[in-house]
Design a protein around this nucleic acid. Structure first.
Length: 259
DNA sequence: TAGATTGTTACCGT
DNA sequence: CACGGTAACAATCT
């Protein structure tokens, strides 16, 4: 999601520019019933009004319909030939090998969506109502509500709730592990079991981690990242990390200090 | 080579 | 019905 914020910032450079044509080298990237022809007709001569982000969804509002882009695991964006993430500058995306969608602007520039693994999707009029509050500006009350469970229900594991985009929008697998590690909370704890002190600590570390990793360069830049392998050790106390599948994703945590 | 992968969603069981 | 777990998707990388 941090990555998507980089894409949003890059896409701000498209604001005020008018689409002259749309090409879709890989129609597989089109979501729902959208066709290349339909997308082209909808965006032709549309002017980009804003580049917004809601969780991992990038939204380009235009004078016509809004364009929504989900990046999957490997999608990335380039504006006027400049990739959003510098470390990918010389990568295959720069060759155009995985170009899935390209908007050309009347001024001669272009916005390109590249996606090697093709899990990303492009839609018109994305449904944002299914997304919870954005992790960047979630309040304490909203976080409490996101983790709350129905009476007498144990609830999903804490990490599963954090990954649920309808509860909190924008937290991915690596970020979830990093935040829980920093907040000293075990990922499999029932989400409804957190007390006030736990919730305050989680919110504080969520905010700090987002700011920190955004500054460092993305969700893969966390302190836990280099230790996510068999034999990896906790950077805080040196205890061997444990691995399990929680919330459907590979999860690494320190059994010594995460409770 | 076998296994893992930064995400989403349809489907299934409780 | 609401909730939560699982597999599938797709292609690449280690």
């Amino acid at each position: 999601m941090m990555e998507v914020e980089y894409y949003r910032r890059l896409a701000e450079g498209a604001v005020g520019r008018t689409v002259s044509s749309v090409s879709v080298p890989d129609p597989h990237c089109l979501g729902g019933l959208l066709t290349a022809r339909g997308l082209g007709a909808a965006l032709h001569r549309a002017t980009v009004g804003a580049a917004r982000r809601h969780g991992k969804l990038l939204v380009l509002d235009t004078s016509g319909p809004s364009l929504g882009i989900r990046f999957g695991m490997t999608g990335t964006l380039a504006l006027d030939g400049h990739l959003a993430i510098e470390r990918l500058r010389d990568g295959p995306a720069a060759e155009g090998r995985w170009l899935r969608l390209r908007l050309r602007f009347a001024d001669g520039g272009e916005l390109a969506f590249h996606d090697p693994r093709r899990l990303g999707r492009v839609v018109l009029g994305p449904d944002e109502s299914a997304l919870g509050p954005d992790a960047f500006d979630i309040s304490g009350a909203q976080l409490r509500a996101a983790l709350a469970t129905a009476d007498h229900r144990a609830g999903a594991p804490l990490k599963a709730r954090l990954l649920d985009q309808s509860k909190v929008a924008g937290i991915g697998n690596l970020l979830a592990d990093e935040v829980l590690w920093r907040a000293a909370l075990a990922p499999m704890r029932p989400s409804g079991s957190l007390g006030d002190a736990d919730l305050r600590r989680l919110l504080r570390h969520l905010r700090a981690t987002l700011a920190d990793l955004l500054d460092r360069g993305g969700s893969h830049t966390g302190d836990l990242m280099p230790e996510r392998h068999p034999g990896g050790r906790c950077p805080r106390d040196g205890h061997e990390l444990e691995r399990a599948v929680v919330g459907g994703r590979t999860t690494w945590w320190c059994p010594a200090h995460q409770r």
